[in-house]
Write a protein that binds this DNA or RNA. Sequence first.
DNA 1: CCTAGGTCGTGATTTTTATCACGGACAATC
DNA 2: GATTGTCCGTGATAAAAATCACGACCTAGG
Lengths: 187, 187
Amino acid sequence: MSNKLRQHIEEIVPLTDQEFQYVLSHFSFRKFKKRQYLIQQGDYVRNDFFILSGLVKSCSTDQIGKSHVVFIASENWWVSDPEAYHNQTPATVDIDCVEETETGYISLENREKLCRELRKLEYFFLRKTTAGYIASQKRILMLISANARERYQFMLLQYPGLLQRVPKSVIASYLGVTRETLSRLST
Amino acid sequence: MSNKLRQHIEEIVPLTDQEFQYVLSHFSFRKFKKRQYLIQQGDYVRNDFFILSGLVKSCSTDQIGKSHVVFIASENWWVSDPEAYHNQTPATVDIDCVEETETGYISLENREKLCRELRKLEYFFLRKTTAGYIASQKRILMLISANARERYQFMLLQYPGLLQRVPKSVIASYLGVTRETLSRLST
DNA sequence: CCTAGGTCGTGATTTTTATCACGGACAATC
DNA sequence: GATTGTCCGTGATAAAAATCACGACCTAGG
């Protein structure tokens, strides 16, 4: 299972066996069942999770109790509450499993230690964060410029695989429309 | 003027005079007039710009010719077309000046060189990128969960200073609503 | 086998927002 | 000092999406 993590890192920086063993020693592993929480609103967020298998969603609940899907992550994605993790503030989202999910995770302390000791890893995280930022910008452009149908097509293009695995209501919320509107698009 | 850049970096990593001089040697400086372009759609994007004074907006034009404000940046913000800059692809946005604007800018090559040679700078850019990612996530949550009035209030909270300096039509586009809808909110 | 919960489609209606159109205020330019 | 362009508000109308409501289907669990 840790092989997946290695492959993922080596897409950006090559590692010797020894280096990877060292990296690995900073990670822990945990399996979650469907509907189980990785993070709950208000939690102190210790870890950033790498998804080895399965699928999770990150949701924010507004004042009137409505839930909004901020993020969806499956294999080879990282997921956490970034603000809570990096700034050590309470979690503002719930992250729970849409499918049974296996994760490798790393604490902020371990991540910072690892980055200091192994230059390559700092570079790896910089690249990953940059990629995440670029993806966010694309989603923002989609949200400010596209109607419901175009948003769905964006999803089809960007994450075709997810559509079969995630309930439509979750897709709808991720796209910022209602379940009903999404359901009526085919017409 | 380079003082502003130093202060900005030193909010995250302290620098000796010598280190800062070295950093500075990787930057260039340029002043732009109102309505002048920093980057135009299709350009090869060589630089990431740090705004010393003034204000710029980044706009994407869709298929039917409508322009959408992807980003607004004033003093102490960095701005570029991140995807084009990092992945060396043609620019997908126009970045132009809302006010006369002074910038310090750094090429990707210089940035990578500087990061390799001065560890602190790689850390600095990681922190900046992370902060940008977190801000994007907040904007996404706003866009999927808030109506026009709530979006405007988000703007009031996050960037109160910008409202006086930027035309309402630009604010509206940034929030993903029309100029007319924004104008009618007070009622 | 039956039930409860989750998922999805769809109709009827209301609400929100976009679109189109116009005029006024103001500043910059010649 | 007339003119042009930009910015902003607002009315009338159309379009899009949200809301509320219902029933069908499926499957996991007692």
